[in-house]
């Protein structure tokens, strides 16, 4: 009997259920349609849209290690910074003028750092991890500061002139090219991340986050998997850093700052961990919030960011996300009820 005729298959719907795990949902399509429409809808807000796009990519990176693999990092800015400076230096010294190629090289530079440092990060438990990740970012910042003849120190890299993307699309004054460029990179990297998290590899990461002891007991080499995702995430963060440099033609020491790593955690928990869109939604909410707060109280907006963090934790992240999901789920239940009522109505003569 061929496999598709086996009787239990119909009963259990295994294949369907497995397929469902990675199926594109209408909400996702809506999200990306809106993102695409932003190009036309907000022609005067390209600057902030671009920032949202590379921030989203950066958060996506954190979500891969924190949301999926459970690695808490206080120094994810390290990879962002390496990407930012690599892209900046490549463009400034005309080593690689074409942005996409420079972007890839910057990502790879961060990736190498991620791979090397992953062994340090895997070495300890939670607390040691926090310290080591924080320490690495601070160390890089210190290095960038010491070698100010290369990095420009506190003033940062200045005088970067970006060449056209792929030699075709000139960066314009309004930032339209920047935004489209960042959005395309974000989308492609999102597709890759989506592929990764729904693969056997991605599932094994979630298992490790849940219970590393059991994961090892069913034959999963825990540290090797964590090293792999940490390296991949470093690549993502490097790309995000490079995009930020390329879109602003600037890179300064604060790419490595603790505040950047801490803000990143906030952005991710605003949107929620472990489903990829959390980072994207968080990036949108955070940037808009920052925009509003910065206009309202330019010097002290960090107070409100801090307050949000405190309240978020006190209320409970899980509870908060239940509340936000309540609306859409309520609508879905009502729709489902209507649908089944309609079906029942058809059946009764």
């Amino acid at each position: 009997m061929p496999w598709y005729e086996m009787p239990w298959r119909e009963r259990t719907g295994i294949v369907g259920s497995l397929y469902d795990l990675s199926r594109w949902r209408w909400g996702e399509m809506l999200f990306w349609t809106l993102a695409l429409m932003a190009i036309l809808l907000f022609p005067h807000r390209y600057l902030i849209l671009t920032e949202i796009a590379w921030l989203a990519l950066f958060v996506l990176s954190l979500d891969l290690i924190l949301g999926y693999a459970g690695i808490v990092s206080l120094g994810h800015a390290a990879f962002f910074g390496v990407g930012a400076y690599t892209a900046g230096l490549l463009a400034l010294h005309h080593i690689i003028d074409e942005p996409v190629l420079a972007l890839l090289v910057a990502g790879l530079a961060a990736m190498v750092l991620g791979f090397v440092t992953s062994f340090l990060v895997m070495r300890g438990a939670d607390l040691t991890r926090l310290m080591v990740t924080l320490g690495i970012a601070l160390l890089l910042r210190e290095l960038a500061n010491r070698f100010s003849d290369i990095t420009g120190g506190f003033d940062g890299l200045q005088g970067i002139v970006m060449q056209p993307v792929l030699g075709l699309f000139e960066f314009d004054l309004f930032g339209k090219t920047s935004f489209i460029y960042c959005l395309v990179v974000l989308f492609l990297m999102f597709l890759l991340a989506r592929r990764i998290v729904h693969s056997p590899f991605g599932l094994s990461l979630r298992a490790i986050r849940n219970n590393p002891l059991r994961a090892a007991a069913i034959g999963i080499p825990v540290n090797r998997r964590l090293t792999a995702i940490y390296t991949i995430a470093a690549f993502y963060a490097g790309l995000a850093g490079a995009l930020s440099t390329q879109s602003t033609a600037l890179a300064s020491l604060d790419v490595f700052s603790f505040e950047r790593s801490a803000d990143l955690l906030l952005v991710l928990v605003i949107g929620g961990t472990g489903y990829l869109y959390g980072g994207l939604i968080g990036a949108v909410v955070f940037k808009l919030l920052q925009d509003v707060l910065a206009t309202w109280t330019p010097q002290y907006w960090q107070f409100w960011i801090g307050l949000i963090l405190v309240v978020l934790v006190l209320i409970g992240r899980e509870r908060l996300h239940r509340w936000t999901r309540w609306g859409p789920e309520r609508i879905k239940t009502i729709l489902d009820a209507r649908k089944s009522a309609a079906v029942a109505g058809e059946k009764t003569p």
């Binding site: 497995l18 397929y19 795990l21 990764i196 729904h198 693969s199 056997p200 991605g202 094994s204 998997r225």
Partner: peptide
């Protein structure tokens, strides 16, 4: 376990 391109 290391397959990252295929779906489950």
């Amino acid at each position: 376990g290391m397959h990252w391109w295929s779906s489950l």
